[in-house]
Design a protein around this nucleic acid. Structure first.
Lengths: 94, 94
DNA sequence: TAAAGTAGTTTACATTATAAACCAAAATCT
DNA sequence: AGATTTTGGTTTATAATGTAAACTACTTTA
């Protein structure tokens, strides 16, 4: 029987964000938007969901006078990501 | 920049079906339902979508007097699955 | 000072997923 | 034999989700 895939991670944009956050200490909103090619609105919503789940933290700062949103993956997020990848491998291994 | 993930395949149930169909010649409805743990209704809908996309073929037969639905992955389906897996690897490699 | 750009958020809509309800036939009770 | 349950699905109504458009607030440029 195939394992469940964490529905929070099984979304192209959220998975992309998590993937980008794995392996960096933190990433800014604009960076994530560019790398994922998402609209700002969509990214904003999905970041909130990841944050509410405790998978990432969101810091709102200012860079000079411009708003700056900085995201980091949490331990919980790393664990969820790794479990997701592990489950996913059942689906994609030949 | 992260690649697109074929939305038809980026669904737990449809991906599960395709994964099961890769590597077998054909599979029956009941087998797919058991392996994916899906409800019959949901499976029926998702099989239709895969079929409409040309990713699988669906044969409706009878086994004695019981209906028997047999599914096979198509060449197009195999190609789509392989491309999906290839794209997905960008997301999950460390 | 008006227009355009930056960095986001909110919200309304479209799509999708899912389960509940349903159908037809067969097998099992009583 | 007639009623009930089971099997193998399909249809459809609703809930959940994803997404873009519209908006806010502030800054920079013309």
């Amino acid at each position: 029987m195939l394992r469940e895939l964490d529905p929070l991670l099984h979304s192209q944009l959220r998975l992309g964000v998590m993937s980008l956050l794995m392996g960096v200490e933190s990433a800014e909103f604009v960076y994530l938007r560019e790398k994922t090619n998402a609209t700002a609105g969509n990214l904003s919503v999905q970041l909130d969901k990841l944050s509410e789940a405790g998978y990432i933290t969101i810091e709102k700062l200012f860079s000079g006078k411009k708003p700056l949103t900085r995201c980091r993956i949490t331990k919980k997020g790393i664990k969820a990501f790794e479990e997701y990848v592990s489950s996913l491998k059942d689906y994609i291994k030949k």
